[in-house]
Nucleic acid binder design. Structure first.
Lengths: 334, 334
DNA sequence: TTGTACGCGTTATCAA
DNA sequence: TTGATAACGCGTACAA
């Protein structure tokens, strides 16, 4: 038998209105009655039912997070940042993992109606405008992390600048033949991690007055296997590159594996630099472009909280900077 | 303006009872009226409010997962398994990350009352009997993963056997001085990952008729830094071990780092074997004891579903086996 | 086969 | 300062 507010009222000898006021710290309760109610609550070990509460308040105290959780360790890191911030605020986190496009679109179209969460954080996912509009109409507050849409406040890392720094560093070290392994481009081209990294690379080349030869660009999946395959392709060219820049650390790990298979020493024969700054990069002493993942997550949460309090706020685009981490896999060419 | 079941009833020209019956696929609705209702639903783009629904049904369709998400990559892997299984079932996952003991106990005491989730999955966390009883009384179905309590169905990996296999392998390779870096033991001793791994080690030594010298046992935190420190301690002994068995892969990674700092080659000068089977182990070609993490998560979910349908079921203890993975960090001593 | 009325546990309104 | 009562949106007896 669940104990309700009525039981408390009965035991305390007051009306349920008063109990409710006490629970919610509403003013206008005589201290004497307050203590009576409080002790009745303690005696019964009563807890208000959150469901009945949200029935009226239309709030659940939970935040939904839509994330391609499994695709890349990068997302796990983002999720950690989000989780830390949410826990500190006493908010519950409902995790919606998307593994396929169908699933993603399903969440985009159904979740806003469900009202099971007070706000939505969408990580690393492209939103088509029709879905964005649909979500916008529903009125649920949304913040995008590592993704961009003109309809929502979007927090992104400056991928152009990050890639630019990495490539510039390689060039400064004396590398001229630099291979680039990009990740597959999906969806929206206006903010696209892969495309932006390519742009950054071109900028660095341009600035140095060098030519980036198209055969040095290979696109692969964002994972280790993709990286390895792409590296093999790059390294089997007659004039093979002296350095490879990979669009993600996992791809860079694949490059490392390919190099080992081909008996190339890193960094003596080949410099390798990744992108993301996940933990493996540190373990393998991989040079990389470090993204502020935790910070991105935490900032995203605080932006969402603000938006929930002030739903009319217009969308903004916030860019965070990455940090170039030079470790053991890069050096000047022989 | 939210559209309710009344709107649908009005548009369809029927009573709300009928609409409800259609929504829940209850029998006893004339096909003609059913289609009328269905088209009204479509026309209004109506979705039943899950909150109001749970108000009556006392179900939320969500499962709570309590997990020390950040402590070890192992937990992340478990979580993945859980998430996959839950998504397939269309259940929502509410993530409760615990970072401190206080937080853990808070969840243990408050969550069961909240009724925000229909069931609870507790990962890698020790439950004191008083909390266990408290939870049991609340009636919420609970399954434990990588943890044990007599009060709940518990899924564990056979840590004794796993450690036994690892150490036995090292001994068979000819190692006699084997260092063991254990993780800190917390809580319950009856099922304890750390203690069981120690027991397994002793069994292997006993079976081989060898003596395990106490100075070869060091306890550290479950992470990389702990492992590194412990390894330094072990490797600075006069008669230093020819092999080190670490209670987790992350500790083993620390061992690798220590070895590099000390200019010891792995595996020529030192064999290293870990425990867990997380992705880094594969990347670093670390020999390890592979735990079936995904399987554990998925099995846990299916056990929980069964328990939710049949709450009276008595607790059972289920042991899964681990697999010895020999990679590049182990070989016979010089 | 269908419609009505009631109850789920809370918050908010309003009169006392 | 308080208590009674009306919502909130839905499921379900019960009556028709």
């Amino acid at each position: 038998m669940t104990t309700t507010i009525h039981d408390v009222a009965r035991i305390a000898g007051v009306g349920i209105g008063t109990v409710s006021r006490v629970i919610n710290n509403n003013p206008g309760v005589k201290p004497a009655t307050r203590t009576k109610v409080l002790s009745a609550i303690a005696q019964l070990n009563y807890r208000p039912d959150p469901i009945a509460r949200s029935m009226i308040s239309k709030r659940t105290g939970a935040i939904g997070v839509i994330v391609p959780f499994f695709t890349r360790p990068f997302n796990t890191e983002l999720l950690r940042g989000v989780e830390i911030a949410l826990t500190q605020l006493g908010k519950e986190l409902v995790l919606y993992n998307v593994m396929t496009d169908t699933q993603r679109d399903h969440y985009f179209s159904e979740l806003p109606m469900h009202r099971r969460v007070d706000g939505l954080l969408i990580l690393s996912l492209q939103i088509e405008d029709t879905f964005a509009l649909h979500i916008k109409e529903s009125g649920i507050p949304v913040i995008l992390l590592d993704a961009y849409s003109p309809f929502f406040t979007s927090l992104v890392v400056d991928n152009i600048k990050g890639a630019y720094q990495a490539v510039k560093y390689l060039i400064e070290q004396g590398h001229q033949r630099i291979g680039f392994i990009n990740g597959v481009i999906e969806g929206n081209i206006k903010f696209n991690q892969a495309n932006d990294r390519l742009i950054g690379l071109h900028r660095a080349f341009g600035e140095a007055g060098l030519l980036f030869e198209p055969e040095l660009l290979v696109t692969s999946e964002w994972d280790r296997y993709g990286g390895k395959q792409a590296a093999c392709q790059l390294l089997s060219q007659e004039k093979r590159p002296t350095a490879i820049f990979a669009a993600s650390d996992m791809q860079a790990v694949g490059v490392l594996e390919a190099a080992r298979d081909l008996n190339l020493r890193v960094p003596e024969d080949l410099s390798v630099i990744g992108f993301d700054g996940i933990e493996v990069a540190e373990l393998l002493e991989l040079s990389t472009v470090q993204q502020p993942m935790r910070q991105l997550g935490e900032l995203g949460v605080s932006k969402l909280i603000v938006l929930m309090k002030n739903p009319q706020q217009s969308p903004e685009l916030i860019r965070l900077n990455s940090t170039l981490m030079i470790r053991r896999t890069t050096r000047a060419p022989a």
